[in-house]
């Protein structure tokens, strides 16, 4: 049959083939043409609509995602985080570095306006000439502890020690000569006590007055005032002179001052109550004279 088809094909011209096509096509269109059922049509159209809706939704979501710029946590809160970090850094430096704290305080003090001290230049200009410091004595400054009688315990202790090593008189006199006459009477007793302690007042002032000179000087003046109120000032540094001073007070019948001065002598020269003390008899006589009054 194939061979026959080949011969027919070879024998058929194009015009004959066109006529054959038209004839077959006419017959083909006369037959009933199958079509898909309505159910199939509905299913396919529904699938088309559903797929298109889902694809459009996906496209919208994709577009929204592509338009959104994802910010990280650090970028989103960069301002609060940077501020907190700065505060933490500064606080840590101030807490861990004491020098920074001191500088900060000093700068803060400088920035605060204070009343000028120019009005009281005398406080800083107290002309106290200081004798050379004894090298054998300790350089540390001990604040004098005042007892009820106004005499420092350190002075009393020194006096007890100094019975064998009396203070050179020349040093005391030279020290007194350097004090101005205006302040000589008031400062002398304290200066002598300070010198007996082994540290001069000037050294004490210079050692501690670098930051608070005004306060130090105020303390000294206050101590001096208290000494004036409680007991007569001790102008002498030896028991002999003290007894002579006491006898002068008794002779002048200034018994109140004499009694106070007597107590001062007892505290300053505790060995004077010792019968072996050279001034024992004279002091005892004056004491009996005062107690009899």
């Amino acid at each position: 049959m194939t061979d026959r088809h080949k011969t027919d094909k070879d024998a058929m011209s194009d015009e004959e083939f066109i006529a054959l096509q038209q004839e077959i096509s006419a017959l083909y269109k006369q037959q009933a043409l199958e079509r898909p059922s309505a159910a199939i049509d509905a299913a396919i159209l529904l699938q088309a609509k559903a797929t298109q809706a889902s694809s459009l939704k996906n496209n919208v979501n994709t577009a929204e995602k592509s338009n959104l710029v994802q910010l990280s946590f650090w970028k989103k809160h960069r301002l609060p985080i940077s501020s907190a970090a700065s505060v933490m850094l500064i606080a840590s430096v101030m807490l861990l570095n004491p020098e920074f704290k001191q500088h900060a305080v000093s700068e803060l003090d400088d920035s605060v306006p204070v009343m000028s001290d120019v009005a009281t230049p005398v406080q800083m200009a107290a002309p106290v000439q200081i004798a050379p410091v004894q090298t054998a004595e300790p350089a540390t400054v001990k604040a004098p502890v005042m007892d009820a009688t106004g005499v420092t315990s350190s002075v009393a202790a020194y006096m007890s020690e100094s019975k064998n090593t009396p203070m050179p008189q020349a040093r005391v006199q030279g020290f007194d000569a350097q004090i101005p006459q205006t302040n000589k009477a008031g400062v002398r007793g304290q200066m002598k006590m300070e010198s007996a302690e082994g540290v001069s007042v000037g050294e004490a002032l210079t050692s501690s007055s670098s930051t608070e000179p005004r306060l130090e000087r105020t303390d000294i003046e206050r101590n001096r005032t208290e000494l004036d109120r409680t007991a007569p000032r001790m102008h002498v540094d030896s028991a002999e002179k003290a007894v002579m001073q006491l006898s002068e007070l008794v002779e002048s019948e200034d018994y109140v001052q004499a009694e106070r001065y007597m107590i001062t002598i007892e505290q300053r020269f505790p060995n004077i109550v010792n019968p072996q003390h050279p001034q024992y008899d004279a002091f005892k006589k004056l004491k009996q004279q005062l107690t009899s009054q």
Binding site: R35, L45, A48, Q52
Partner: peptide
Amino acid sequence: NYQQGDTAAFEQLYSKHKGPLYRYFVR
């Protein structure tokens, strides 16, 4: 057009080609 979301375009396209394609398979 259907690619851009026009379902009516697909309906038009489907109605045009559904018969021949169906017969392509059935026959």
